[in-house]
Write a protein that binds this DNA or RNA. Structure first.
Length: 587
DNA sequence: TCAGTTCGCGCG
DNA sequence: AAAGCGCGCGAACTGA
């Protein structure tokens, strides 16, 4: 494959492209950098492809002032800008001082939207080119070095990567239209700037506080390990013929407390009836066996220690002193974000962890949280009149469920009853069984219920919320193999889906649509005011704002989040809780 | 030995 | 008839 290109030497070489730009222009942009980290590595080359023109290549390290200012004009023009994984290029462009304006078309996001959750790989540029153009791109230059002189081969590959974007774009565009996925893709593209800002901003961790916390947890862990050993030993003393006895008395670590396999074996030998050592099974018998409670306690602290406490500091960036995770816009089959390196979306809720996430000097956090968004979406989608009425009358939905289930006046519902109803609401919405409900209520909300109670609650729930019941009934008899969110986001299954997945997908997915809409809608204003998005956790947005602007910005965020919700949800009001805080634990 | 899988568990 | 869904991560475990 040969690509015509022009290596820009002077302002005259870039003039044809610049002067041909208008609001209908379409350009494809790719960049080459000296590495993957926008804070430590440098943007070297920019390639721009446009219709009926050779690809232009600009060596940023040698570009004159004139060329740079031409580039600035190109990036802020209203031309459609096509990228593959725009997030990467945009981060480098912004760190290099460029302002880049949409509209964007991201070929990677487009392909992911089109795949509708059917595959998790195969979104590399070369994959798309093979699929859309039936062309096998020659192998990428292995570890290509973009910090020295360019070879002819490097230049030609660089140009080619920009050129093919222009060629696969119409294919992807028409596929999106045919699949009625344009709105979904548009929303993803409109989100891009917000996601870029979020990754560049990252979050600030109070490192000293965190270190102290880690120390305490480590002490805690060794105490709990000792307790667990002690309890195991006590158990085996009563059954002295068991082989583990010797082990436990020796100096060597008797058995690996972290090994599910070894623990299962040991506990079974103690006569404790277990099939696995999952928390679910353990929690049921923790009262009868002190050793089980000891294992649960040990595991809890071990988990947070190895997953968070000891690993998080490794992610503090040497340049910014902040943590910059990777967000994946289509990291999940339903449309939610996923987050990695580290996954800030699963920092324990416990105050001792979250209070370590703080704003920088002179700033405050603004935390916006959609209230019961999935239940509101469910009411909207299922048209359940009782649930819709409840939300419209601003009733507490969990109290309402409690009062309806137990036939009590809504004002007399106790805290415990509300907790139980919360479990019922969230569980049964996605068709949890009675057994599951019972365990879920216990584990998530500390609510004891008998199996019979769970069966009754389940029955009552569907009598009371008939709209939910008939919506589920309709779906489960439909034999559908695909389903959409309220923004038209599609999920397709290869085989017949589990009903539970079919129920959950449009609800979780619509909530994700709303979150993305709110990010897209709020970014331009935030950006103008120099306010940064610093995280998003499914139904929650975090901003960092100078103290003196916080009031105004929090008001704006709340209104924008509600406005975003209203775009998809009309029958039910959207509620957003806003907090201005000195750390992440204040919610 | 090492890549891939499973278990268990943190979050929403 | 019965059925929680969506992730990422670390350690243990499996298989060639």
């Amino acid at each position: 494959m040969h690509t015509e290109y022009r290596f820009i030497k002077s302002i005259h070489d870039i003039q044809p492209l610049l002067s041909s730009l208008n609001e209908n222009s379409i350009i494809a942009i790719d960049t080459e950098t000296t590495g993957l980290d926008p804070f430590q590595n440098r943007l070297r080359m920019i390639q721009i492809a446009s219709l009926n023109q050779p690809v232009i290549l600009i060596d940023l390290w040698k570009a004159s002032y004139d060329i740079i200012s031409s580039l600035k004009k190109i990036f802020t023009s209203s031309a459609l800008k096509i990228f593959h994984n725009a997030k990467f290029d945009l981060k480098f462009l912004i760190k290099s001082g460029f302002i880049v304006h949409g509209p964007y078309f991201d070929t990677m996001l487009a392909a992911q939207v089109l795949s509708a959750g059917q595959k998790s790989q195969g979104f590399k540029l070369s994959d798309l080119v093979r699929e859309e153009l039936s062309i096998d791109l020659p192998k990428e230059l292995q570890n290509s070095d973009w910090s020295g002189e360019f070879s002819e081969e490097q230049l030609s590959y660089a140009a080619r990567d920009a050129q093919v974007l222009l060629e696969i774009y119409p294919c992807l565009l028409s596929k999106l239209e045919n699949a009625h996925l344009s709105a979904t893709a548009e929303l993803e593209f409109e989100c891009l700037s917000a996601v870029v800002d979020m990754e560049l901003s990252g979050m600030l961790l109070h490192a000293e506080k965190w270190a102290k916390l880690t120390e305490e947890l480590e002490k805690n862990q060794s105490d709990l390990a000792a307790t667990l050993h002690q309890r195991l030993k006590e158990g085996f003393k009563r059954i002295p013929q068991l082989p583990f006895m010797d082990n436990l008395n020796s100096e060597q670590p008797p058995l690996n407390l972290d090994s599910p396999k070894q623990m299962l074996e040991a506990l079974q030998q103690l006569g404790i009836p277990l099939k696995t050592t999952s928390h679910e099974e353990l929690s049921q018998i923790s009262r009868q066996f002190p050793v089980i409670q000891a294992l649960i306690d040990y595991r809890k602290v071990t988990k947070v220690l190895q997953s968070f406490a000891s690993t998080l500091p490794k992610y503090i960036h040497p340049v910014t002193n902040r943590i910059h995770p990777d967000y994946w816009q289509i990291g999940t089959t339903t449309g939610r974000f996923s987050c990695r390196n580290p996954n800030l979306q699963q920092i324990p809720r416990d105050q001792i962890f979250r209070e370590c996430f703080i704003p920088s000097e002179g700033n405050l956090l603004i935390i916006g949280d959609y209230s019961q968004i999935e239940l509101r979406v469910a009411a909207e989608i299922s048209h359940d009149q009782r649930m819709i009425d409840a939300f419209q009358q601003n009733q507490d939905i969990h109290c309402l469920t409690a009062s309806l289930l137990i036939g009590k006046d809504i004002g007399n519902v106790t805290k415990e009853e509300r907790q139980a109803a919360k479990a019922v609401n969230f569980g049964l919405l996605y068709a949890m069984g009675a057994r599951g409900l019972q365990l879920y209520a216990q584990n998530s909300y500390g609510v004891e219920m008998t199996n019979q109670q769970a069966v009754d609650f389940r029955k009552r729930f569907f009598e009371v919320y008939q709209g939910i019941a008939s919506w589920q009934k309709e779906l489960s008899t439909s034999r559908l193999k695909e389903i959409r969110t309220l923004n038209g986001r599609l999920r397709i299954w290869e085989d017949h889906p589990k009903m539970t997945e079919l129920f959950n997908s449009p609800i979780q997915g619509t909530a994700a649509d709303i979150m993305k809409q709110s990010m897209a809608m709020s970014f331009p204003y935030l950006n103008r005011n120099n306010i940064h998005l610093i995280a998003t956790v499914h139904d929650e947005i975090l901003l960092e704002s100078p103290q003196e602007k916080a009031q105004e910005i929090s008001h704006f965020l709340k209104e924008t989040m509600i406005k975003a919700g209203k775009k998809f949800i009309q029958q039910v009001p959207i509620e957003v809780d806003i907090v201005i805080a000195k750390n992440w634990s204040e919610k």
